[in-house]
């Protein structure tokens, strides 16, 4: 292969992410345009009805319920995952004996490698019955979905946070210890502030992931078009409604589902870009 050809091929390859992004946005927009033209933006995201019309003609479709469901499951997952992930990161960087660091890290990484459908299976057949036993309700619902989602993002947050915390220079920690600080004070006053941007970046990135995660919650949220009444109630979310109704939908409903996919993609694009461009930039230079 000649140098020029090689360079051109690799340049084209490098632009593939940009091409894909544009292609995804335009394709989703193209299929969503029916729904966009019919409902507009505001009416769609505040609409709570999801009803196909007679003979599949028309119908009213609003995304409020799945949008709220997505935000709620993500919020619950983050609330559960954050302290645990931070705890694991602290354990691995500041507390664990040398010999423990490796096996524990591998265990956490394996947790991240398990396919999400497996989390869904486990959640449906093991977690949901437990939740039902101790908290009542149907077992499936917001809380169960949030827990499974949390377990999925814990390794993710923990490993980025751990890397960020590991960049804290030893002398800096030593000089806090040398002033009589306890381990917790060193972590709180030196390590976490030092790793702050990396930690925030990882949290936002995890948020983006949790928002788009589908298979782990597809079984667990209940997939019913209603707002949840409490923490253990069933509802739906954008990924869940997509996974469970997309293949049967037609015409305007299909277009409305594309609209929801577009909203989900735009949301995670914004969140992830924020994390990448603002908080996690120049990770090699730091």
């Amino acid at each position: 292969m000649s140098g020029k050809l090689f360079k051109n091929f690799s340049f084209f390859s490098a632009t593939i992410s940009l091409i894909l992004l544009i292609a995804i946005f335009t394709t989703l927009y193209y299929y969503a345009s029916d729904a966009i033209n019919t409902f507009g933006f505001w009416d769609f995201i505040t609409g709570t009805q999801w009803e196909a019309g007679e003979d599949d003609e028309g119908g009213i479709f609003g995304g409020a319920i799945p949008i709220v469901g997505s935000l709620l499951t993500t919020a619950i997952a983050m609330i559960i995952a954050l302290p645990l992930a931070l705890g694991i990161a602290i354990f691995l960087t500041e507390i664990a004996h040398e010999k423990l660091i490796k096996p524990v890290s591998i265990a956490i990484e394996l947790l991240a490698a398990i396919p999400s459908i497996i989390y869904g299976m486990w959640g449906l057949f093991y977690l949901a019955p437990l939740v039902q036993k101790y908290f009542g309700g149907a077992g499936i619902g917001l809380f169960s979905a949030g827990v499974v989602l949390a377990i999925m993002i814990i390794p993710f947050i923990a490993s980025i946070t751990k890397d960020a915390m590991n960049t804290t220079p030893n002398v800096l920690k030593e000089s806090a210890y040398a002033m009589g600080a306890t381990k917790f004070e060193v972590i709180k006053d030196v390590v976490i502030p030092y790793a702050k941007t990396g930690i925030i970046g990882s949290i936002i990135l995890a948020l983006g992931r949790a928002l788009g995660e589908t298979m782990a919650v597809a079984f667990l949220l209940g997939s019913v078009m209603k707002f949840p009444k409490n923490l253990f109630d069933t509802t739906t979310s954008i990924p869940v409604i997509l996974a469970n109704t997309f293949s049967e939908a037609e015409d305007l409903e299909l277009s409305a589902l594309f609209y929801l996919a577009l909203i989900l993609f735009a949301l995670s694009f914004i969140i992830i870009s924020l994390a990448k461009f603002y908080f996690l930039r120049n990770k090699e230079e730091r």
Partner: peptide, 9 residues
Amino acid sequence: VMMSAPSIV
């Protein structure tokens, strides 16, 4: 960014 794109999308 593409690495974190929702797989369902």
